[in-house]
Design a protein around this nucleic acid. Sequence first.
DNA 1: TGAGCCATGGAAAAGGTTTTCCTTGCAATG
DNA 2: CATTGCAAGGAAAACCTTTTCCATGGCTCA
Lengths: 354, 354
Amino acid sequence: MGVLSRNSVTILDVARLARCSITTVSRVLNNSSHKVNEETRKRVLEAIRELDYRPNALAKSLLSKRTMTIGAVVPDISNPYYAEVVRGIQDTADQEGYTVLIQNTDRSSDRLRRGIHILREKNVDGFIFTGGLHGMERIGELLCELKERTVVIGRLEEEFPSVRVDNEQASILAAEHLVQKGYHRIAYVSGALYSTTMVDRLEGFRKALKQFNLPETPGYIQEGKQTLESGYEAMRRLLSLPEKPEAILFANDQMLFGAMKALSERGLRVPKDFAVIGFDNVPLCSYFDPTITSIEIPKYELGQAATRLLFSLIRGENPQTPLWFPVRLIERESTSASKLRSMDRQKGKKLPTF
Amino acid sequence: MGVLSRNSVTILDVARLARCSITTVSRVLNNSSHKVNEETRKRVLEAIRELDYRPNALAKSLLSKRTMTIGAVVPDISNPYYAEVVRGIQDTADQEGYTVLIQNTDRSSDRLRRGIHILREKNVDGFIFTGGLHGMERIGELLCELKERTVVIGRLEEEFPSVRVDNEQASILAAEHLVQKGYHRIAYVSGALYSTTMVDRLEGFRKALKQFNLPETPGYIQEGKQTLESGYEAMRRLLSLPEKPEAILFANDQMLFGAMKALSERGLRVPKDFAVIGFDNVPLCSYFDPTITSIEIPKYELGQAATRLLFSLIRGENPQTPLWFPVRLIERESTSASKLRSMDRQKGKKLPTF
DNA sequence: TGAGCCATGGAAAAGGTTTTCCTTGCAATG
DNA sequence: CATTGCAAGGAAAACCTTTTCCATGGCTCA
């Protein structure tokens, strides 16, 4: 051990120390089928340990045309939703010895383009896209030879293999839940519509209005930006409407949390005065007061499945796609029968509900 | 344009098309000082465009021993604190044409070791560590030749250049604030003590107790795990003590949010029944109800400064270090004079306070 | 006329692997 | 004894660049 050499040690150094050729060292290293004498192998292994030799991945990649690296393009890593997806990707990649190179787009198509170029130049073995940009010019052209090694989480361009949840259906599910609870005047706060996810969720809400014969009141559909602040402002706009909604569906939990502030500022309470329901089911939902009903998206699993799908592509297989994942509604206090709850709270008797 | 070739095009292809040697192509590519005829240059550029040629970064790196990639080792990317630090790193690296390879350690020293090995194998040009592991065997040995191209955010091993905040002083600041507000029975909820940050914050709290002559009640210092759940449980333990604290300092905001649930379950209110104060000042602090007093850590700036420090190291400079960053206390409702606030809320007259 | 300089271009080495192909020596088989 | 086959090892090509060094031809200046 030891010998913390300043400049890195190469396979040649090992060969010299083990008194053999670099070919033999390479064979031991990759335990190739070509036989090597047990004694020689010992010497080589000893030399490797002695020098703390590690093969240079660059040289290896140059030859094998495999970098064991995949690129992930995400809109915003500090959003808990994508953070969880990325975890799924990283863990799964790691299991197969792959590394993940993450590019933030900040939801700008310029940065998206730039990110793709960087990743291509770094010779990634495949791409995972998430948080698709809606209405951006065709992405396929930028990918070139990597086009066949690209998977999408969600919906981007139809040609790509993808891993998805049915966001339209999810919105309908949420609306149905509210209807069953007896709410009719339902508002919707959307995220920015350059994301296909946001487009689908909004579309689903519109369909639900029709399906359940709900009124479509002007101003009941607000568009925001998937941030706390944007949710806060959207809520204030809703509160300034002449005829207030009874329940609000938010296209993501962040916006909902922001909106809660607008409510409490007015002394309004959930679920007594409004029912609210979110999207994504981030961890805070079960810790907020009141706990928040939300549509659970299997974030980690999406990342995991996308990565597995990509590996299957890399292996040259022809996997079935799209892969659909189920969503489910997690009911919590924010949509529970209102009168009952507010009494409980006053008596300070609430039990833990996660 | 076009010709979306299946297998990548090399500098040789360009040379052939432009009827010159690869040397010449390389020269126009890196516009070297060696003169090349204007007409030839035209032909080369035309060929490059025609074939959509992009130099292979792998081959370039193999030669130059520079990968234009830096490695970042973080405990948990889905923690909003580290997400923000990473943003600072990525943005800054990007400006200089560098890419960032992120390794999650999940706070396990095994995964830390593994992460370092992977990054070394990928030939990163430098390391940034954050969320130092306390009491782990010396990390320097794992870094070998990269030891001189490593910076730390926080405190890890004294020999490394670092970018820091004074966490001890920050805890004292928080305690002082509570004392000034008239609180004396102060509890502290710590994160897991394998993080040097958490060690320092706790140490600061202990010093503050002495400095302000506060009682050190048994059970008033709880240790948890920097998660919502852990904060919830710590709070429940505090609430079961015979003599309850008046104010609680949390070693991070996540734990504080978790604790809020434990409080509301008991019908207890902040700041009426308890004052609470957090650490990190994540965005939600200003949107929670009540808004949360927290110690602001310049997360993005820490990442930014660390990256700049690293670049300075890579350039062979000998920068001054450690670099200290200021913290400040952001006062919000969770520690404001209690009687007043609770009246406001009942009248529904509260104004927006961020 | 010849020496030296400049503009332009190419050949080849280097970087660290893996892999293909070849060599050597020895044992077994006829 | 001659032939075949196998175990073990090495040489060299290939991967794609950049960079150093050399070659050529034309021009200027003494």
